[in-house]
């Protein structure tokens, strides 16, 4: 197994727009294994895009299953992914293996519909939400030469209300609101 080298900002190659994958051959399968090992070895381990390792093809791996209590599709190989519908927006904090030691708030769509091919070239469709939807939007940006730092919103002033987790009740006899299950 080999780990691939991650390009880090301000490396200009991260601005490259990646090309569609056309060959679903053995070379691709071998690359996917290395890419997954590289993702798993990283600090977040929930997603990686091929251009992050200097391969400018439209390939994304995603696996947000380690996050508790969320909807997700498990371990995904997403080739030539395309978002066909968006809905809602949500602010959330993101970091990136290609942008070490910095995290920031980014607005992303809450729900989306995605079309993508798998490692064999078979087309699939997914309805995604929450963390998984956020992750694919972050990775799709990599394919288009964008980083989350291109989309930051102020840390100091929230432009949009976040999802409220606990509203501390003002009346002592009322029990506290339950955490929103995501």
């Amino acid at each position: 197994m080999s780990l691939l080298e991650i390009l880090t900002y301000p490396d200009p190659r991260l601005k490259t727009i990646s090309a569609p994958v056309t060959e679903f051959d053995a070379k691709l399968q071998a690359f996917l294994i290395d890419l997954e090992n590289t993702m798993r070895a990283g600090p977040g381990g929930v997603g990686i895009a091929a251009p992050q390792v200097g391969c400018f093809q439209r390939i994304v791996l995603l696996d947000v299953s380690s996050k508790p209590k969320i909807k997700h599709h498990g371990n995904l190989v997403l080739i030539n992914p395309e978002i066909t519908q968006w809905e809602g927006f949500e602010i959330g904090r993101e970091g990136c293996m290609s942008v070490p030691d910095y995290t920031g708030n980014v607005i992303r769509a809450q729900y989306l519909h995605l079309m993508a091919q798998d490692q064999h070239g078979i087309q699939h469709e997914y309805d995604m939400e929450g963390f998984e939807a956020r992750a694919i939007q972050h990775e799709l940006d990599h394919l288009d030469g964008l980083l989350f730092i291109d989309r930051l919103v102020s840390r100091r002033h929230d432009l949009f209300r976040r999802k409220v987790y606990v509203s501390i009740q003002t009346q002592p006899h009322l029990s506290s609101e339950k955490a929103i299950d995501r």
Binding site: G42, V46, A135
Partner: peptide, 16 residues
């Protein structure tokens, strides 16, 4: 402070 409004939310940072 029964009249204070207080909200608390976890910040989960997704590193990708």
């Amino acid at each position: 402070h029964p009249d204070l409004k207080v909200q608390l939310e976890p910040i989960e940072t997704l590193v990708m």
